[in-house]
Amino acid sequence: MATDARQACFEAGIKFGSLYHQFAGTPVSPASTRSLETAIAESIENQPYCEDVAVAIDDDAVAADIDHENGYTELSGHLMEVDMRVEYGGVTVRTRMEMEDGYPLMKLVEVVDGADGDDEE
């Protein structure tokens, strides 16, 4: 049987998979980054145990990726950073997606068991 900490980590992984694969390829321009950030965060926050999502899309990177006259590019991992907080049972999991060695890496930042105060960084 899974512990609350393992289940919380699993839930965080599900949220990241959903976030990335649902929104990768979405048309984005410098004019639409804020609204897309909000849409992504609010969509993922609807999922069970997800308490907070912060999405930051890099306007300059979006502008640099536009290579045609239509004025937009497709959203991909190198254009955004995401922080997420999932709570399951008495456990809080903090995660982050950011570029690392040219790859949008999703990682576990912190696991805190509120029942006994353990921090499993």
Score class of each variant (00 low, 15 high):
E11N: 12
K15R: 11
G102V: 00
F16H: 01
R96C: 07
L105V: 08
T73S: 12
G13D: 06
D52I: 06
L36F: 09
A63P: 01
A61S: 12
G77Y: 09
H21M: 06
A41C: 03
A5L: 13
A41R: 05
D65M: 12
D59N: 13
E37T: 09
L19R: 02
V91P: 01
G25T: 13
G114P: 06
F16N: 00
P48S: 14
V53T: 03
Q7D: 13
M97F: 10
A8C: 03
E37G: 05
A41I: 06
A12K: 11
E110F: 00
S43L: 07
A2T: 13
T38Q: 14
E45N: 10
E98F: 00
D52M: 06
T26E: 09
T38L: 14
G90M: 08
D119W: 05
G90L: 03
K107W: 01
L79C: 06
A24E: 14
A115R: 14
M97I: 15
V55T: 08
S43G: 12
I66L: 10
F16T: 02
M99Y: 01
G77Q: 12
D118W: 12
D116E: 10
M84W: 01
T33L: 09
D83F: 00
E98N: 04
V112L: 15
P48L: 14
E87P: 02
S29D: 11
E120R: 15
N70K: 15
E100P: 03
D52R: 10
D101K: 08
I44E: 00
E69Q: 15
D113W: 07
V55E: 03
F16C: 00
D116Q: 09
G17V: 07
A12S: 07
